[in-house]
Amino acid sequence: MFAVEAKNLKKTFKTKQGDVEAVKDVSFQVNNGEIFGILGPNGAGKSTTILMLTTLLRVTSGNGKIQGLDVGQDDSEVRKKIGIALQDTGIDNLLTGRELFFTTARLWGFSKSDAKKRTLEMLDLVGLTEAADRRVKTYSGGMKRRLDLGLSLVHKPEVLFLDEPTTGLDPGSRRVLWEEIKRLREDGVTIILTTQYLEEADELADRISIIDNGLVVAEGTPDELKTSIGGDVITFIFHSYEDAKKAKGLVSNSEIENNELRTTVENGAERIPDLLNKLSENELEVVSVSANKPSLDDVFLQVTGYRLEGAADTEEELIENE
């Protein structure tokens, strides 16, 4: 049995401008104990997919299962199995960390004494023991995210959904959160993580599903995805966009972005001299050239046709307007 299954999930929002398909067809399976990354730009359908799987949004068609339980039919049981830390789940800023953990534990059915014990455990787990009696409004962004993560773990869920857990955090706080997420995997928690950070997906995810425009466009381990491109990525930097554009006509299977031209070839280092000669013969001066193994960025570019940065941000607006 898979920890999580999404089968042909589809979500259509009705708006004043007409129907909008936020998720067109998303399927994946997540094994127990793995970190599964859903990578994509804002508006790709990541958050909508998570909201459907966590019972917070009705599925238009298709189905989802959590530990074999049907989303939409066994919602109450599904909620007991999962922990949720969404981008827009709130934290009561007027209460302290200790009060929030205690209240959450009591709502999950812990007795008073067990709730006190669990509160201490959770404060320790997310490194907030010292700040336990401070009101949350005095916490830093990183502390709030750790608190949010902790609150989603109070009832010891089997599956944890994290929707862009590090968005807006500074690099230091991001690293701290990454370590906590890895530790949870070691404890056997299955984690579904959405992110728009390639580095985050590469660092954390055992497997990745790339979602674009409501569709799964690639899936595999980070290494599988990188290998799927084949060869090495050679990057030429020119003085101008015009030069890069001219070079594109000379180098097959290449993409340009500003004054950069990239191409993927077998044995990249060996091909560089030939390519440089060809460009030179056409009076194109190369500022710098490099050959690297493909990154997730390259994978993303190949499967979507654009780079991850700067994509449109419409999904959250649609969900909010529902």
């Binding site: 007991k80 199995k81 007027l94 209460l95 209240t103 709502l107 009832h155």
Partner: peptide, 27 residues
């Protein structure tokens, strides 16, 4: 995993107490 959840009246009591706590924080 914690498999139980609080009965209705206890939930109501806990949530009411939370709101009262909030009120006490902004006298």
């Amino acid at each position: 995993m914690n498999n139980s959840n609080a009965p209705f009246l206890l939930q109501l009591g806990i949530l009411t107490k939370r709101l009262l706590l909030r009120l006490s924080r902004r006298p």
